[in-house]
């Protein structure tokens, strides 16, 4: 048997005795249900958003009960960061980075609240509650009106004020030369 035939034979043998195609054949193949149970990533395309909907008003009630203790009744912050305000402050001496002033995508808000808020009991909110909370936080930032019902399409399509505020890392941005003598004079010039 030549080398390539041997390789094919080994590959076929590996395929028959293991669950997957890899060279080591270690591990098992998760089922689609198992993947779905763990995969909670929501990217800006929103394709992974779950079905559901919630109103700003519902969000207000949930927020006051489950979030306000740490983020403030007016979303002004407390033990947790402020969730509103700061629009127009980014180029100032005291920038305030919040969902409203800084976050480029509302999908991030859904994703983040779902995976880790409230701080002491993460991953307990239902999809409807999450949509309602996203709606309320966006409303308090003046991004959606009071009567809004939020669903997946809203979360994807809402235009965040700072959407265009980011650009790819362009460092290195300092071009220092290693000076050895009289360096303080050199830099003062």
């Amino acid at each position: 048997m030549d080398a390539s035939r041997l390789a094919v034979a080994i590959a076929c043998w590996t395929l028959t005795v293991t669950a997957h195609a890899g060279a080591y054949g270690i591990g098992t193949r998760p089922t689609d249900a198992q993947i779905a149970a763990w995969n909670i990533d929501v990217a800006p395309d929103g394709k992974a958003l779950p079905p559901g909907r919630g109103t700003v008003e519902q969000g207000h009630a949930i927020y006051d009960r489950q979030c306000a203790a740490c983020h403030g009744l007016d979303l002004q912050g407390g033990m947790g960061p402020a969730l509103a305000g700061g629009v127009g402050s980014l180029a100032s001496e005291k920038p305030l980075k919040t969902v409203g002033s800084y976050w480029p995508y509302a999908t991030t808000l859904f994703d983040y609240i779902r995976r880790t808020m409230p701080l002491a009991s993460p991953q307990t909110l239902s999809s409807d509650e999450l949509y309602a909370l996203v709606g309320y936080v966006l409303f308090r930032n003046g991004i959606v009106p009071a009567g809004t019902t939020v669903d997946a399409a809203q979360v994807v399509n809402v235009r965040m004020p700072n959407r265009e505020g980011f650009y790819l890392d362009d460092r290195p941005d300092t071009k220092e030369r290693p000076c050895d003598e009289h360096c303080l004079r050199a830099t003062k010039k």
């Binding site: 995969n39 990533d41 929501v42 990217a43 800006p44 395309d45 980014l90 180029a91 920038p95 980075k97 969902v99 800084y102 976050w103 480029p104 995508y105 999908t107 991030t108 994703d111 983040y112 505020g165 980011f166 650009y167 790819l168 890392d169 362009d170 460092r171």
Partner: peptide
């Protein structure tokens, strides 16, 4: 999770981005 695009998770948008004097910010400054 292998994807064709970044997630833009909170830690790569709200945090760990570098705010510049013009009010824009560097992203993916790894």
């Amino acid at each position: 999770h292998v994807t064709n695009a970044p997630a833009y998770s909170r830690e790569e948008t709200a945090k760990y981005t570098d705010l510049m004097p013009d009010g824009r910010a560097r992203k993916f400054s790894f």
